[in-house]
Amino acid sequence: MKIEVDVPKCVASGQCVLIAPDVFDQRDDDGMVVLLDESPAPELHDDVRESATVCPAAAIRVQES
């Protein structure tokens, strides 16, 4: 799995951070998404998929290997 985020599309809702805190974070100054791990471990894949699904701005793209 490979993850890409489109930071300009991000609306800083923080849902991704709540669901997958090992993969996503938010910038302190504006709350925009920060990708911590673009190729997370398999045990995190379900959380990453859920984060992409619930992202209100569709700013998270998941490429399955």
Rank of each mutant, 00 (worst) to 15 (best):
A58K: 10
E64F: 00
A41C: 10
V48G: 12
V48K: 15
Q15C: 05
D29R: 14
C16N: 10
E38I: 12
V33W: 15
A58E: 06
I3M: 07
V23W: 04
V34I: 14
P21G: 01
C55T: 04
D47W: 00
D6S: 12
C10H: 02
V33E: 02
A57C: 04
M1Y: 05
V17A: 08
V33H: 08
P21H: 01
Q63A: 03
P21Q: 00
D37T: 07
E38P: 15
D25F: 01
V17I: 00
K9G: 03
L44A: 15
L36G: 06
Q15D: 05
L36C: 03
V7L: 05
P8C: 08
I19A: 02
V33A: 02
M32F: 06
E4F: 04
A58H: 13
E4C: 04
A20K: 07
G31L: 01
P8N: 06
A52R: 12
D6I: 07
C10D: 03
R49F: 11
E50D: 08
Q26N: 10
D37S: 04
K2I: 00
L44N: 15
R27Q: 14
R61H: 04
S39D: 09
S39H: 15
A58F: 13
D29N: 13
R27G: 15
L36S: 09
P21C: 00
D47M: 06
P42T: 15
P40I: 03
C55K: 01
D29G: 06
V54Q: 09
D25E: 04
I3F: 01
A41I: 07
A52I: 04
C16Q: 11
K9I: 03
E64W: 02
L35R: 09
D6Q: 11
D46L: 10
D25M: 00
V34M: 12
S51V: 03
L18T: 11
I3L: 08
F24D: 12
E4P: 09
S51A: 15
L35S: 11
L36H: 06
S65Q: 13
P42R: 14
D25C: 02
D28S: 07
E64Q: 10
H45I: 13
A20R: 12
D6P: 02
R49H: 15
V11P: 12
A12K: 05
V48R: 05
V11F: 08
P42L: 10
L36Y: 08
I3W: 00
P40E: 07
A20Q: 09
M1L: 10
S39W: 07
G31D: 01
G31F: 03
V54A: 09
C55I: 05
D46A: 15
M1T: 13
P56Q: 10
L18Y: 10
V23C: 01
E64M: 06
A41H: 13
D47L: 14
L44Y: 13
D29C: 08
R27C: 06
F24T: 11
P40L: 05
E43D: 15
S51L: 03
P56E: 05
A12M: 00
D28T: 10
Q63P: 01
R61F: 06
K2Q: 05
V48S: 11
